[in-house]
Design a protein around this nucleic acid. Sequence first.
DNA 1: GCGAACTTTCCTGATT
DNA 2: TAATCAGGAAAGTTCG
Length: 448
Amino acid sequence: MPKLLFRRLGDALVCHSGNAKESCRFTTSPTRLKSETPVIQMKGEDPFVLLFSQKLEDFDLHSPTPSETTMYSNERPLSPKMINQQDMEIPLYSSQYLPNDQYIALGDIDMGRQYALDDMLHSALGFGEGITPSFNHNANTPSTENQLTLLDDLVLEDIMTEMSFKNKPVHEWNQYDVIEWVHWWAAEKKVETIAVNIPAFTTLCGKDLTKMRPYDFLQLDSQYGERIYESLQFYIHYHHVEWHDNIMPLGSFGQNQHQVPSLTGQGSEPWQHILNHDVPGKSPYSGTDSDPESTSSATSCLSEKQASSVQFIPSINSVHKPVSLVTKKIGSGKRGRPPKKDAKSRNRQGKGHGKLWEFIRDLLLNPVYNPSYIRWERREEGIFKFVQSDKVAKLWGERKQNTSMTYEKLSRAMRYYYKSQVLLPVFGRRLVYKFGPNATGWRPQIQY
DNA sequence: GCGAACTTTCCTGATT
DNA sequence: TAATCAGGAAAGTTCG
């Protein structure tokens, strides 16, 4: 019996049929996913049909074969309006996740979301009873009840086996394993990813984590550091006890705090330079610290090249600092930007200090922000989408030391790139942009 | 000091 | 109704 598996990509839940040529994707908001769980069943093998409990109008549904496949909900046919021709060619979800026609592999899961995939799938399981879906393919393909595939063997644990950090001891984790684990932790604990200071972990490897004390975790994330520390100790003890023979004895949170390094940078452990940067008013990626030793001599797992790729990415936690919003003038009659009272309060703008499109590009290349903040729609074509547009705007504003930055303003700047063909518009798609011929550095590097 | 380039801010109107 | 998009207008900032 073929299996129907899902892959979550940011806000998108990707559903594959039993044929690699067929795929169907729908996107919806996290809120809707959580509060109004879409109900999904598969009917038939090739093609297939997806059945939703909610109105189809609520979803942005794309099919690769709209002309050949007729999809029906239990109430109404799929509106042609909802078929987006631009999304018909999506190699992104093809062979890598489809080993053969019968069994479909589950791709990497974005664990950065609040909602739990297993909750969603369990809800889907319960929906099938009492529902008589209609299905029509080419007007002559009968509905085949016996081909209905339930999702009973999809559990979160299976999904987790896809994550690389699980296959190695903590002290061998690289920076990406650390990031992945923190994402996994956030999903496990139902903690919003954006509330966790994940950027503070991006320069750490597993070896650093195993040597860090509770207080160190608090310095990385004042809100969740304690819980992350405890979870890590639990993880090491109960999941990787066979690996961690070189790891220091573990203490419960609250102990050993007298042993922690000082924040003033006098310690000698390799992660301390990172902690020293993560103090209020200082971004760990700002690169403005005047002490060259603190950034170059530490034995962080990051190479210089890797470090440079994230050096200007600001702390997410700091985004949550109080923002003084500019109130909109109503009917002032005066157009244009008003004179700035505090002209020196802003970071340098204009040329030479990182352009907006480069900032966006680097977010896309950073697993900390892709896909939770921004994600590729079709990477090979340079098409991307803002997942949390307001958060990206805050990041951009933080970079420019402009706390009043909004997505509206950011998007205006994005649209100015149309003229120079750094970006190209993607008509009909909200929050979607495309890199133009004058944008560089976004294409995946081919390894020879 | 000037102008170009880039960005920000505000706005109107349209669309989703 | 709110969010987003499109684009005009003008001002702020930096740099050559």
